[in-house]
């Protein structure tokens, strides 16, 4: 089937198989592999994107459900070639190791800071509790969130 949606501000039209997730469509059909395929059941947050301004797991959105909607992926956060402040902070604090969870954390953090400019320790932990990281033990990710919030 054919679907039309906005991705990172651009109108896109694509052919998908009806059983495919938005994650698959982004990665395999739109050439946007930044959203990651770690569990495909909403347990890790690696595929996090913004759907109409809400943080969601793109693996749990049927591609066809995105018809007519607005999607922002990790690839859409940088502006004019400059990293988003969250991306900059993640790179700076050592919040990235293998990096497979990073796009999801970056999107979730950008969403958190857009809603809550100065999150408390509990708030940031809870806001990121849908994103798993296996490498860092999270400490430097929290450093990155605090650094981004401070800017």
């Amino acid at each position: 089937m054919n679907i039309e949606l906005r991705v990172n501000g651009e109108p896109r039209e694509l052919e998908v198989w009806e059983g495919e997730s938005l994650l698959f469509a982004l990665r395999e059909r739109l050439g946007l592999p930044g959203s990651k395929n770690a569990c495909e059941q909403g347990e890790c947050g690696s595929c996090s994107v913004m759907l109409d301004g809400k943080l969601v797991c793109s693996c749990l959105v049927l591609a066809a459900q995105a018809q007519g909607h607005d999607v922002v992926t990790v690839e859409g956060l940088a502006e004019d070639g400059n990293l988003h402040r969250v991306q900059e902070a993640f790179a700076e604090t050592g919040a990235v190791q293998c990096g497979f969870c990073t796009p999801g954390f970056v999107v979730a953090t950008a969403d958190l800071l857009a809603r809550n400019a100065d999150p408390s320790e509990d708030e940031l932990r809870e806001a990121l509790s849908g994103n798993l990281c296996r490498c860092t033990g999270y400490a430097k990710i929290f450093d990155a969130v605090r650094l981004a919030a401070s800017r």
């Binding site: 930044g34 959203s35 990790v74 988003h84 991306q87 900059e88 993640f90 790179a91 990235v96």
Partner: peptide, 29 residues
Amino acid sequence: MSAPAREVVLGRIGEVSRRSDAVPKVTGE
């Protein structure tokens, strides 16, 4: 929302050094 580019410390032995792959990893590239 965008942050200005910051000076990146490349680093020698014993220095805190930003990962060489940090930027492509945070942008999804």
